[in-house]
Each structure stands twice: as C-alpha cells, then as structure tokens.
Amino acid sequence: MKQEISVLMDGELFEDEAGSLLNRIEHGSELHRDWEIYHLIGDVLRQPDHIHSDLSAKVRERMRDEPTVLAPRVHAVKQKMRTFALSAAASLSAVGVVAWMSMQISPEAAPNMAMQQNVARPVNVKIQPKSNDYLMAHQEFSPSTDMNGGASYIRTVSYRPDEK
C-alpha cells in the first residue's frame, strides 16, 4: 500500500487507480497519515529551508498537557526523575519519528525523491525570443487559450527591455 502511495505521488498511477486510492486515503486515517508523511519527506528533500512542521513545539505542547503530579516533598526526587524520563521519552520519540520516516521510504521510492531534489530551477533565466515559436505552438493547444482567449498569447510576445 505504501508503495502505491509513493507511486501515486510520483504521478505514475493510472487515473482510475489513483482515483480509488485517493478515495481510500481520504477515508483511512492510517493511509492519510502515510500520505502526509510522504509529502513532508518530499518537502524536506526539496526545500529543507522552508519546513513549517515544528516538531519541538508539538512535543512541548504535549508535555504541557501532561497532568501535573501533586505529591508530598519526599517524592520530589521521583518527580524529577519523572520529568527527566518524560523529556527523554519525548526526545526518543522524536528520534523514533525520524527513524520511522526514513524507514518508510521504500528503496524504490527513494531514488525518485532524490531525483526531484536535484531538479535545476530556472529561477531567473528568461525565455529567449528565439524560443517564442515554441511558446506560440504550445499556446495553440493550451486550455488557457480557451479560458483567457487571445490574452494568453501575450506570453508568446512579451518582451523585456534587455531583450534584443
């Protein structure tokens, strides 16, 4: 099943298969969690600088919700021990999550994700005027032409002052 989700995320499932799998993901909390974690892994691999999931905050929050043990002074040491044990458990579980996450990447899925990570990004290179004919040939068949009408053809002629 995990393999299937990974294949789905790579966009390699057939339409009907993807549809039924998405349905199952929507209704099964286990699958839904897998789905989320896979996306998180993908995000980490692609953009490690922009991860919003703050694990430590969640751990802290859970710790705060733990019941406070009110007990006589004699048990102070035990209490300390308990706090220590709790935080150790939290750290362990954090390590566990990371380990578990890495175990979840099946050997087949891993290369694909690694590949995505290496995608070169066309950040600032503007399409050269000599490529305009490709844009125009593409625009003819793009649904945006039907939606925006001729306005989307502006893409094929847009110019920049630095273009010659």
Binding site: A120, R121, P122, V125, K126, I127, Q128, S131, Y134, L135, H138, S142, S144, R155, S158
Partner: peptide, 24 residues
C-alpha cells in the same frame, strides 16, 4: 531552462534529437 510567467521551458540535445518541453 528558461521561464516566462507560468510557462517553463527546458531543452536538451539527446543523441541526434533536440527535445524541448514547454508548459504552464
């Protein structure tokens, strides 16, 4: 690689072929 707005373009020579992919 190059881009203009939502449209990205990538081209590469592979063997005897020039392959260009374009899409929004």
């Amino acid at each position: 690689w190059s881009s203009r707005g939502a449209v990205n373009l990538y081209h590469k020579i592979m063997g005897n072929q020039l392959i260009t992919v374009v899409g929004e």
